[in-house]
Design a protein around this nucleic acid. Structure first.
Length: 205
DNA sequence: GTTCTAGAAC
DNA sequence: GTTCTAGAAC
């Protein structure tokens, strides 16, 4: 059939617009929305890479970190504030004082529309399947929200060395709790399930 | 962003 | 032989 390729569905060709579609059709996507206010929307990540994984989207259509200007700092600060509040609520609800989160942006996002990740540091999820998934939530590829705002304030823009960022995704997987090298995904999963040490790389909230 | 699978790694 | 990764998808 023309619409199929070896039984695999043809690509929509517009996966990168998924967040824009949610923002433009909030009514249709009510079940994805966790919080909403005048300036932003918080949604559940469609393929969560941890027990808690949400995205803060600005209602203003800032397409990516590369488009950021100093004039966007206000909405970035607001998104950050919402993200921090969310971590506090989730920690309270979970009853687990040790529940920690990373809050930040990917150096090279796959989806259009700026999105701030709020992700718990357990990284316990069947959707976390490969090295890129792991490395994309670890520094330096994962840019802490506070660091990004400082960078923008200082330089008036966010500049990313794409070649270097792509290399970071291919680097060895390093534990965020012990800084040990993980030999493969199954070894990482085993480590994540067992290791109870606090996170020692990057900023946590 | 994901799925799928060839072939590398073990 | 089985596990695991990494790149194509028109």
């Amino acid at each position: 059939a023309p619409n199929e390729r070896r039984g695999r569905p043809v690509l929509s060709g517009h996966f990168e617009h998924a967040l824009l579609d949610i923002l433009d059709n909030l009514g249709k996507h009510r079940s994805s929305v966790l919080l909403e206010d005048k300036r932003c929307v918080v949604i559940y990540d469609g393929f969560p890479k941890a027990r808690y994984h949400s995205l803060v989207l600005p209602k203003e259509k800032i397409m990516s970190i590369h488009d950021l200007k100093r004039s966007n700092l206000e909405v970035l600060r607001h998104m950050h504030e919402i993200a921090v509040k969310l971590t506090k609520h989730l920690r309270q609800d979970s009853g687990c004082e040790e529940l920690s989160f990373r809050i930040g942006y990917h150096s090279i996002p796959s989806l259009k529309l700026l999105h701030l990740h709020v992700i718990s540091t357990d990284f316990d999820s069947p959707c976390l399947k490969n090295k890129k998934h792991w490395n994309s939530f670890q520094p330096p590829f994962f840019i802490d929200s506070g660091m990004l705002m400082e960078d923008l304030e200082r330089n008036g823009k966010i500049s990313i060395n794409k070649e270097q960022a792509l290399q970071w995704l291919k680097d060895d997987m390093i534990s965020h709790r012990t800084e040990e090298k993980m030999k493969n995904i199954p070894a990482l999963k085993d480590h994540l399930a067992r290791c109870k040490k606090p996170v020692c790389t990057g900023k946590v909230y």
